[in-house]
Design a protein around this nucleic acid. Sequence first.
RNA 1: GCGACCGUAGCUCAGGGGUAGAGCACCUGGUUGUGGUCCAGGAUGUCGCGGGUUCAAAUCCCGUCGGUCGCCCCA
Length: 452
Amino acid sequence: MAGSSHIFQAPKGTRDFDPPNMALRLHLEKAWRDASIRHGFEQIDGPTFEHLDLYTVKSGEGIVSELFSFKREGGDTDYALRPEFTPTLARMAASKGRSLSLPTRWFAMPDLFRAERPQRGRLREHRQWNVDLLGAPGPDADAEVIAVALTALRTLGLSQSDIRVRISHRGAAAGLLSACGVSDDSMADAFSLVDRREKIPADQFAEQAAAIGLDEAGVRRLDDIASSRIAATNAPGTIAEQHGLPSETVADLEALARELEKRGLLEFCDWDLGIVRGLAYYTGTVWEIHDAAGDFRAIAGGGRYDELVQLFGGPAIPACGFGMGDVVLGLVLQERGLLGDQLSDLLPRPDVFLVSSGTDDAEEHLVPLATSLRELGMHVRHTWKSTRNVGKQLKEASSNRSRFAVILGEELANNTVVAKNLDAGTQVDVELGDLPIWLQRQLAESEAAELQ
RNA sequence: GCGACCGUAGCUCAGGGGUAGAGCACCUGGUUGUGGUCCAGGAUGUCGCGGGUUCAAAUCCCGUCGGUCGCCCCA
């Protein structure tokens, strides 16, 4: 790396977005925004940093080591770069108080920060799509936010063979766990154990299960429940039956199943009571979206948190929602071959590349023609190199994937230019005055052809 | 914060004490007005950075910064 001794490196866990990578980010954000809007959600945002207290009040002091926090020079107030958006959302909802018209459907695409060691799919700065439905307590709301997430993922080309929604429910899982012999006091520990079951050896699992008061049979049932994942096309009651429990234990999941079915989404979903999602603030449905093979971290995670707004000093507003980060999603799309041969294919294609052969007449026409075509809304480029070699200019036009090239040269004496379709390789002479209309028609045709 | 592995051309990587390498990309020419193919030629590096050992370090040692993977944690 030339002269790298004096070149600054980007901070650990951050990314530079060169044009192809920026195109990828915009590609994801467009899918997110379009899906949100199609489902009737409205975009919000908040500050990139908040008072440190906003994050410690809910999670305790332990979270501070995972935050980028700071004081103003000479100031006393502690701030932190936002590690998640939900506290900001809850703060906004709480501060609007009763003037907030409910139900409210909000989405955001914040930049988030965490001070942890980067790993695959986890960086120190990332972009996350957040969708929240406030003031709707029913399973239709849970199903609706899952639908929004899937709309975006399907827009990006992912199908039910690529991704799975793994759904659990705090109440249903707790019911099954208490039937295994887990006491109410040990419930949090039991959830934590369920969450870690794939990371720890079987003997440790049994040991820790025994520590929360389970007998041998109870340990076995706990393990069964935690690792039972079945297609959502099966009624949730079958899970309860498998463990010899009444189907009322999973009544909430039955209601959710009906709502998912109305939206045609059961095929994308699995019932998976091993999904826990931390322990923070979820109160009902909890779910994650994973790649079908399970090779990556969760693409998205969400659920119901009916007490959160109240926790931040607002009225009691039932709420549900999810977050989806750009990092894992990008990895999954790449792995599934849904980003084209190279990222630069996601860059906007120029409609027209103007080529001047270098004659005085051509040079005079170049910029005015570019200006008038741009006024018609076209993406117009010409070379910024000094060469007037037509071959080199055409090479530049094709390397940036221009749809048409227009060559300005000797023909201008007859008020004519050469218009070339760079995809088809065909070219025709066009009257200079007819060029804008001709191009508009050709571009409309090629756009229609691409949509088929 | 802890552990393991890695850092060589724009990119992907080989080389492992003695003159710095390949493929792709790039540039030039074949073609001074026709691209994506082909042929021929060409340029490119403080071998991440700093220090140490050595006659000699890309190579060995220490440190540091970055990357990857795991632990912790997960919003």
